[in-house]
């Protein structure tokens, strides 16, 4: 579970500024297995304001379908999904 700790802030903000606008929360979900990446995103969505964005980095391939499907059913939005080597990066916007 040690991996879950947020990445060093610098590295995180550098990366995200390139990819999209403002990120309110960084989640490092690498190494977590299905369905935990989705669970962590769900648990943390209320920690950002409505309109806020979570940037989640996972390695579990199940999350590729899980997180967008979760967003669809809970009325949130996945702004972007991209892969960087083994990392899968999601930008999830809290809609309500």
């Amino acid at each position: 579970m040690a991996k879950e700790k947020a990445k060093s802030k610098q590295e995180a903000s550098e990366k995200t500024e390139k990819t999209a606008g403002k990120v309110d929360l960084e989640l490092d979900l690498r190494g977590l297995m299905c369905p935990l990446p989705m669970v962590r995103v769900s648990q943390n969505i209320n920690k950002v304001p409505v309109g806020g964005v979570i940037r989640a980095v996972a390695t579990d391939p199940g999350s590729l379908a899980d997180i967008p499907s979760w967003a669809r059913t809970t009325g949130n939005e996945v702004l972007k999904t991209e892969r960087d080597g083994k990392d899968i990066i999601f930008l999830v916007k809290r809609v309500k």
Binding site: P35, M38, V39, S42, Q43, D66, S69, W70, R72, T73, T74
Partner: peptide, 11 residues
């Protein structure tokens, strides 16, 4: 959480 997981699987 189970509701959301089940919902996601259905979706």
């Amino acid at each position: 959480i189970l509701t959301e997981l089940a919902g996601a699987a259905v979706s």
